[in-house]
């Protein structure tokens, strides 16, 4: 199992619970705002916002909602925006399969997780059956 990178020096910007589709929209708007504050360009703003949107939707659709933590800090000498999404859902059976293009366990297109991975600079995932899933993504500014 992959170990999530973490650092106590990261500054927590905000923390949200995801329960409704409306929460997804709110968090997305905040992510875009944070990205802007970190001087990211419009392309990177859109990328990180879309990646977060994918993760939040997964959480909402499959993980019975969850929690999202927004942080900023230094990662490998990069100034990064760090977003951690965690749920207590059913977990992912086969991570390798879930990370491959076109595979979906539900009604989606199957590009959510692999797509989100391509949109960010670092993508870490940890999942345990019947315990939940944690995804941590980072985008350098």
């Amino acid at each position: 199992m992959m170990q999530l990178t973490s650092n106590t020096n990261w500054e927590t910007i905000d923390k949200h619970l995801i329960k409704t589709e409306h929460d997804i929209v709110n968090v997305r708007q905040q992510i875009r705002f944070c990205a802007k504050q970190l001087n990211m360009g419009i392309i990177n703003q859109t990328r990180i916002t879309t990646a977060v949107s994918e993760l939040l939707r997964n959480m909402y659709n499959y993980g019975e909602g969850g929690e999202v933590l927004i942080q900023k800090g230094m990662v490998d000498e990069h100034n990064a925006l760090i977003i951690t999404c965690s749920d207590q859902g059913p977990g992912i059976d086969n991570l390798e399969l879930a990370m491959s293009d076109g595979y979906t366990s539900g009604k989606g297109m199957g590009y959510g997780l692999p797509g989100a991975k391509r949109l960010v600079d670092r993508f870490e995932i940890e999942s345990e059956k019947n315990k939940g899933t944690i995804v941590r993504i980072m985008k350098w500014n």
Binding site: I42, I43, T46, R47, T50, M109, Y111, A116, L119
Partner: peptide
Amino acid sequence: ISPAIAQTIVHLGI
């Protein structure tokens, strides 16, 4: 479709 969204769609693989 804005340039940013066009790039994002391509990266998503849609």
